[in-house]
Design a protein around this nucleic acid. Structure first.
Lengths: 213, 213
DNA sequence: CGCGAAGGTGAGCAAGCGCTTAGAAGCGCA
DNA sequence: TGCGCTTCTAAGCGCTTGCTCACCTTCGCG
C-alpha cells in the first residue's frame, strides 16, 4: 500500500538521484530523474511532458531547453542505465575465482543493482520498445554484451567441468530473465533487502547450473 | 494508406484467435483479438481505439457498441487470460505424483502456456498497471492464487524432504518470475518451441529446489 | 409486407498531447 | 550601468485521442 502520493523523499528517491549525480547541469538532471520516476511508475507512453516538468518543479517548456524530445530523455536514461548495468556485470566478472564464484558474483551484483536501482532498471529493461528506430539498435547491442558475459561464464564452467548445463543458450536466457525481472517486482518497502535478494538468487543460479554449493 | 488486411495470419494469430473462440458475438471477439494483438505489440497506452477497430476491420465507433471503454477491453482480456493461466496451473497441480513431479508438471505447462499464448500473456502480465483502480484488485487476487499453487507445492516438497529450499517465499517469487517472463522474450520464429522451453524450465526449477533429477 | 431492435457508419466534439515561440529574468563582464 | 547569453515561463498551435451522436442498414417475425 502506498503511503505518500507523489514521490516520497525516501531511500529510493535518494538512491535514484545519487545515481544520476554525473548528469549536469542541475536542471537537466532534475528533469532526467523526474522522467525516470514517471516512466517507471506509469510507463513511457502514459507519461506526459507536463508531468515530467511538473515533478522537476519547472514549466513544460523548460524540458525542451535541455532535451530535444521526450524520446531523447528515454534514450539518455536507457543508454546510461545499460552502461551502468554492464559495468556492474563486467566488474563482477573480472573479480576472478572459479567459474562458480564468478557466476555467483555476477548474479549477486547484477540482481542487487536491479533491486537498488529498480526504478531506473524498470525503465531500462521494460521501455525498450518505446525507443525510436534510430536509438534501439544501440541499446540492443549493449544488451547483447550483457548476455555475452553470462554466456561466457557458463561456457567456462561447462568446459572445466564445474557446471552441468545441457543447454547453455537456454540457460543463459533463463538466468538473465530471472535477474532482470527483479526490477519488476522488487519493492523497497517489502521484506527483502537488495543484498538478501542478491544472495538468494546467486544460490538459485548456482543450483540451476549444477555447481556444488 | 491503410491496407484493410490485419496482421499476418500465421500460427501465432491462429493460436490467439482459437483461444478466444468462446467470446461472442463474432464482432466482439474480433475486436478483442485485435486488442490483444495491438496491446501486446505496442502496449496499452500506445494503442489507439482506431488501431483496434482498424485491425478488426471496423470503424472506430463500432468498438463502443460492444465495449464501454478501451479499459473494459483490457479488463476482459486480463480477466479471461488470468483465469486460463490459473486453470492450467491447477490442472497440472491436480495431476498428482510426488512433489517433484507436480512441480515439474506445473512449471512445464505454465511455461508452455506463456510461450504458446505469449501475445495474450504479455498483455495479461505486463499491462496490469493500466487497469483502472476498480478492476485491478480482482486481477491481483487471481495472481495471488497462482502464487499459492507454486508455494503450496514447494512447502509440500520441503515437508516431505524432497526439496531443499531455505527460503520458500523468495523461491516461489523467483520461480513465478522466471515462468512469467517467458512471455516477454519468447519468439515463435526463434529456435525453441514452447514444449522445449517448458521442458528446459521444468528441469531448471527442479534443480533450483534441490530435487534429485 | 411493415416494423422494431441490433449492429454498423461518417462526422465530429472536447480534452489532452508533444512541442514552439515571444519575451522576461538572472547572470558575468565591459 | 548596459550588453549579450543562458535559462525559464505564459500562452498557445496543430494534431491526435477516447468517445458520442445522428443516421443508415440488415434481419427475424407478426
Amino acid at each position: 500500500m502506498r503511503t505518500a502520493e507523489p514521490v516520497g523523499d525516501d531511500d529510493g528517491r535518494r538512491a535514484t538521484t545519487a545515481a544520476w549525480a554525473e548528469v549536469s547541469p542541475e536542471a537537466a538532471r532534475r528533469l532526467l530523474v523526474a522522467a525516470v520516476e514517471a516512466f517507471a511508475e506509469r510507463g513511457y507512453h502514459a507519461t506526459t511532458t507536463r508531468d515530467i516538468a511538473g515533478r522537476a518543479g519547472m514549466s513544460p517548456a523548460a524540458l525542451y531547453i535541455h532535451y530535444k524530445t521526450k524520446e531523447e530523455l528515454l534514450h539518455r536514461i536507457s543508454r546510461i542505465g545499460h552502461d551502468r548495468a554492464l559495468a556492474v556485470l563486467r566488474k563482477a566478472e573480472a573479480g576472478g575465482g572459479t567459474s562458480a564464484q564468478r557466476l555467483a558474483d555476477v548474479v549477486r551484483s547484477f540482481v542487487r543493482w536491479h533491486a537498488e536501482q529498480h526504478t531506473t532498471a524498470r525503465v531500462v529493461q521494460y521501455e525498450l520498445d518505446a525507443l525510436g528506430p534510430e536509438h534501439r539498435p544501440e541499446i540492443l547491442e549493449l544488451r547483447r554484451q550483457s548476455d555475452a558475459v553470462v554466456r561466457r561464464i557458463l561456457e567456462d564452467g561447462v568446459r572445466d567441468g564445474e557446471f552441468d548445463v545441457p543447454d547453455v543458450g537456454g540457460t543463459t536466457l533463463a538466468v538473465l530473465s530471472l535477474c532482470v525481472d527483479v526490477a519488476r517486482w522488487f519493492d523497497e518497502a517489502g521484506r527483502r533487502s537488495p543484498d538478501e535478494v542478491g544472495d538468494l538468487y546467486a544460490d538459485l543460479v548456482l543450483r540451476m547450473v549444477g555447481a556444488r554449493a
